[in-house]
Write a protein that binds this DNA or RNA. Structure first.
Length: 221
DNA sequence: CTCCCGATAT
DNA sequence: ATATCAGGAG
């Protein structure tokens, strides 16, 4: 496990590598963001954006999603995968928004997770990105980076990872940190071919030295 | 724990 | 051919 100081240095390095780190899901309001994040489960942001470009022109309000058949909505999102579950979730989410929340996206995480298809990770993205409330959404990238670098323990659940990060990082930096870690994980510390050979954090990374011994490291240029 | 699932990188 | 993708529900 890294110390607070080592974590600080690691996050600063990520900030230098990706100063422009931000939410890459295209959206214009909290409602669109909820839909986009719910669609993004086990699917790339690029693919979600390709679908929502048309989706958000066709469906502007919760009522719009309820006005078509389930089959039509399925076809509109088919290319992102898991489309039957996601279409059903979106419809039920819209119905619940209209019934319980006056058609508006709640700003509270505990209310957000009551929406179908919205778990803790999605709720954290929404409160953080749409409403500016400090949160750390632990997705596949944040979890992988945290475990490889040693921000947390290998056996930690995603909830434990989130708690550990919140304990070691000041609240005002949670949102920035989470985007930096996502960019770092998505473009540098990738799941399949991590760029350990050109990584400024190699010296403090336990996964890097492990890969070095196994001869797995690719040195770019 | 399993299932949902198409697109893309490796 | 297989692994992975801003996970969530049963």
């Amino acid at each position: 496990m890294l110390t607070k100081t080592q974590i600080r240095r690691a996050l600063d390095q990520m900030g230098e590598l990706f100063p422009e780190a931000h939410c890459e899901l295209v959206h214009e309001n909290p409602f669109e963001l909820v839909i986009a994040v719910a669609l993004s489960a086990q699917c790339t942001d690029a693919l979600v954006n390709r679908v929502t470009k048309n989706l958000f022109q066709k469906y502007k309000t919760p009522e719009d999603y309820l006005a078509v058949t389930l089959e039509e909505l399925q076809e509109d999102i088919r290319s992102i995968g898991l489309y039957r579950n996601k279409a059903k979730n979106i419809r039920n989410l819209c119905a619940l928004l209209l019934e319980e929340y006056n058609g508006e996206v709640p700003k509270d995480r505990d209310e957000l997770v009551k929406l179908p298809g919205v778990g803790r990770k999605t709720a954290n993205v929404v409160v953080s990105v749409a409403f500016g409330i400090p949160a750390i959404a632990v997705d596949t990238h944040v979890e992988r980076v945290s475990k490889r670098l040693g921000f947390c323990r290998w056996k930690d659940s995603v909830l434990e990872v989130e708690k550990t990060l919140m304990k070691k990082i000041p609240a005002e930096e949670w949102s920035d940190t989470h985007h930096r870690m996502i960019f770092f994980g998505r473009y540098h510390c990738k799941a399949q071919a991590p760029k350990c050979g050109e990584c400024p954090l190699f010296d403090l990374c336990r996964e890097g030295s492990k890969r070095m011994k196994k001869g797995l490291i690719q040195y770019a240029k």
